[in-house]
Write a protein that binds this DNA or RNA. Sequence first.
DNA 1: TAGGCCCTGGACAACGTTGTCAAGAGAATG
DNA 2: CATTCTCTTGACAACGTTGTCCAGGGCCTA
Lengths: 342, 342
Amino acid sequence: MAETARHSESRYGNRPTMKDVAARAGVGLKTVSRVVNSEPGVTPDTERRVQEAIEALGFRRNDSARVLRKGRTASIGLVLEDLADPFYGPLSRAVEEVARAHGALLINGSSAEDPEREQELVLALCARRVDGLIVIPAGDDHRYLEPEMKAGIATVFVDRPAGRVDADMVLSDSFGGARAGVAHLVAHGHRRIGFIGDQPRIHTATERLRGYHAALADAGIEVEDAWVSLGPTDPARVRAAAEAMLTGPEAVTALFAGNNRVTVTAVRVLAECDRRIALVGFDDIELADLLGITVISQDAAAVGRTAAEHLFRRLDGAAHAPARVELPTRLIPRGSGELPPE
Amino acid sequence: MAETARHSESRYGNRPTMKDVAARAGVGLKTVSRVVNSEPGVTPDTERRVQEAIEALGFRRNDSARVLRKGRTASIGLVLEDLADPFYGPLSRAVEEVARAHGALLINGSSAEDPEREQELVLALCARRVDGLIVIPAGDDHRYLEPEMKAGIATVFVDRPAGRVDADMVLSDSFGGARAGVAHLVAHGHRRIGFIGDQPRIHTATERLRGYHAALADAGIEVEDAWVSLGPTDPARVRAAAEAMLTGPEAVTALFAGNNRVTVTAVRVLAECDRRIALVGFDDIELADLLGITVISQDAAAVGRTAAEHLFRRLDGAAHAPARVELPTRLIPRGSGELPPE
DNA sequence: TAGGCCCTGGACAACGTTGTCAAGAGAATG
DNA sequence: CATTCTCTTGACAACGTTGTCCAGGGCCTA
């Protein structure tokens, strides 16, 4: 029977290690390490020999081992709701750019708006010992993160506040934006305005609804129940909600859409409608200019950049109390929000 | 002088290790490992004691160490061009879903269409020992990946073929799609058709141009130089190209846009134009239905899913020769491509 | 020429985990 | 009661890297 060669086939497909390089170059292990990390104290001749061995063997440093030894992974985690959502693409890209500038890689995960999945993802990232976390919360209780944060994983919450945990946050002014958008409709003569938003457990959804109520209260208008609809933002639900608001004697003359997905569906519904209904949407959308859609725009890239910069400032040692940054929104009139009631 | 407490402050902010848990629970190290990994052979009583210690200390397994030991990182890398591009969001999300189903995390990076940055990113991912790589090539020479692939990092190229390297690829039928799109314009009476595409070093750009030429050749139409423009797809360049094609006695009556970014700008230019110019764009765009834009649609999510499934099949041991999958495209007529020449 | 210093290079431990193996405690069997 | 077998448990090495520390050689100075 052949002797058991239990490690004849190593895990990384027999990748050469520094030891192999050292053997081939006829130097010590640590000298290879020095060359690989451009540390001083190696004569040019020795360095050349090591470089040749590295080249010949196709050696590449194993960062897993390095991470274990050094304690820093040079990677950060980003947990968002859905990478495929056009709002999160630019945000994610902005985070990536900042990470890159700090020599860090980005690990991405989508929670699909499921609190359990969010937690699962976040904890997986913590187990990897990412240096920091940027989280767009799906759930509203983040106490599970406390031990992690105490253990030194810097965390910044984005777009929605953290639940029951004291941490840095970067938000958009949902309340103010919605209030301005609805006030805009009021200013153009509307008194019956519908609001279609996301599920009430999502902070931005209720904030925007609060803005809607504030604007109508400012105008002395009493809101009817039938004008407000919160829930999932899939096309079917939104379509049903919009159609309900547009029918009957009490039909609204204008709609406020609580986010980009709602706006998209609303535009489709209104295109099929025989009356001219005004529309203001939260979040800008590509080609909205050509379609003449008035929106409340938030700068997703700026949100991501701000959050990432915060994070790295923490990683660089900033120890001030958790900060809450609120970025402004901007109303962009393009026609749909300026239609008069009919 | 105080004694040097060189490790008084450990790297992970003094996170407890299995050793600490073992000490507290009064058991051996390996027993903790067994509990953490739900391995059999631990009495309920022991398990309870260990669980309590884990709870009390807030222990979380350090996956860096695990990775080093096991040789699998349970993570894959995705290098694409720009996460903020609406084409890549769904693709990336689809890859993530497949990875999740296999218990792997996704590390994301944008090459910004820069071959050097692509290589830098890919090699960084290799140094992390990701189990596999999905690459949307920016460069056209990937020989630098050969040692990595030989060392066992599975790699799938997506959207564009790998350069000088034999590997799995998942592509869309750019040639066929463009040919069908241009033929569609010809069928509606156009004989002077412009083509605005991406930089010629990008494979899809030249493939689509090839499709354009093929369709016109099929129709016996001779292409004039002024009808074709390849280059960066930033709005300024595309706008200039489009405006040039739309002026003069030899102006085109229809445009074929080589990708989503080109289409967006083209739509803007045409909206300002006094003549009615036909347009077909490669890649579908949100709200294109409302704007009546005829497109050649490719299913980004399907591309991502297919690539990721290929990758994991490789990781599970599939050893067949590199495969090249080409996914079909679909022409979606919505009005802009059916305008007659005027 | 002797002594001291600097510079290069290498041996060794440690990071936190998991695989291997063996020991010990009971239980089952003769 | 002796023996074997099963089951639980823990000691130990190893993964590939980096930090610490020491040795030896060359060079400078007195």
